[in-house]
Write a protein that binds this DNA or RNA. Sequence first.
DNA 1: TACATAACTGAACAGGTGTTCATAGACAAT
DNA 2: ATTGTCTATGAACACCTGTTCAGTTATGTA
Lengths: 119, 119
Amino acid sequence: MSDSEDKTLQALAAVVPVSGILSVEKAQRMAEFFSVLGDPNRWRILSALAAKELRVGELAAAVEMSESAVSHQLRVLRTMRLVSYRKLGRSVYYCLKDNHIFNLYREASEHLDEPEDDE
Amino acid sequence: MSDSEDKTLQALAAVVPVSGILSVEKAQRMAEFFSVLGDPNRWRILSALAAKELRVGELAAAVEMSESAVSHQLRVLRTMRLVSYRKLGRSVYYCLKDNHIFNLYREASEHLDEPEDDE
DNA sequence: TACATAACTGAACAGGTGTTCATAGACAAT
DNA sequence: ATTGTCTATGAACACCTGTTCAGTTATGTA
């Protein structure tokens, strides 16, 4: 099977999540991932990194949090592979890892901005 | 300004979230929304509803939760406008409200399935 | 009306989560 | 080497959140 065929099947399986109920394990993984995005401070950090890569200290100043708090949150974001980093001297520059976070932001934003005409 | 132009601008503004840091209010709203998706039981409920509309009792049986727990979670999902419902006699049928949840699922799923080749 | 069923609600408890404080490590400069 | 800076970590605490249990509402049936 070619890579592109494989990718198509993978996308297809993703769009049709179940034809049944999500397994407890998969549901757990999904929940863990979205929980990471369930914190306002992490969104502010991500939005700051969306503009340009930043060091921990700069980030802390930008979002008005302690460096310790930022560092803790960055570890969480690293674990979920939402950010990546590179060391330069004694500084650590963080940036967004890929575009998934943009798409998630856009999708959620559209949903939140929808008019609530019913009921 | 036409509707389509308006929609384009809106999408653009969503893709480029800030050029600055997300406001505390917006970050809060995003976090609240994603927090709702940060629970495995809610994902199992959503995935069950993805197949077909279900009553609370059927849902409870399907995901193996108490009807009370399901009812509580459905209220949360209703508040975030992720599900809608219609009453028929003494039954209440729930279903997914729109496709945003599908897109979010797909995006997250792709992210989680990505190989973690680095570090 | 009385009863049974389907769904919802409120209060309270247990468990998980983010922050803070203090500390440790890594690196550059003197 | 030692000092100063930048970042990461561990433990403890307070807070929030989901579940459970009990009770209520609403609807349909006898």
